[in-house]
Amino acid sequence: MAVGAAAPALSRPGTAPLLRAEGITRHFTVSGTRIDVLHDCTFEVGRGEVVAIVGQSGSGKSTLLNVLGLLDRPSSGTYDFDGVDTTRLREGARSRLRGEGIGFVFQQFHLLERRTALANVGVPLVLAGVPALRRRARARELLESVGLEHRLHSRPHQLSGGEQQRVALARALSRDPALVLADEPTGALDAASSTMIMDQLLEQARVRDAAVIVVTHDPKVAERADRVIQLVEGRTR
């Protein structure tokens, strides 16, 4: 779908959307001055759907992603995730929901520096209370699925950018989330690595029936989405 296309609320016929954002606003107060970043953002994302969020720098893409990832609360509006109104949840429940339902892929990978690839992928499983043996087996399986079976014991600084992002992808998928949020996942990669990461992200999401929301500047990445949401000065179009 072309960048800038309209953003209708799409869900599979007969199924409830995975997430529904309605009238989301977010403002910050800096030195007494109110800065409105998001205005009345309303949209839905269905299960298994791939959505790209595009927009200029400062248009509020990352802020929206933080709200969708339950890392930040909207100033007003409602955000339902998997049938739960997240704006009413306490912090502990939001953390639990985030851990169980949402996987993150960051532009700068955010791998733990002194841990191996295997250990990095295992972190969400530690948080889920998965026993050590099962955790290692699962992390190994995920790394194999992204083609890193030969890099299990490598630390981030021993990996290329593309490999680090594949580790981050494996980590994002470790708890089979219903939603993968990718913030400029190819922003720090060359063209070949970008293509490989997007191939793997979309393939792994398809296999798991996970929805993907990608924030990107890259038209090639946006083209691969089922739908594109454009943000202009904090408003969805």
Binding site: S95, R96, P124, L127
Partner: peptide, 12 residues
């Protein structure tokens, strides 16, 4: 912050 993003609660 990465721990928190991956689902760690404040208590964790």
């Amino acid at each position: 912050a990465t721990y928190r993003a991956l689902g760690a609660s404040r208590f964790t």
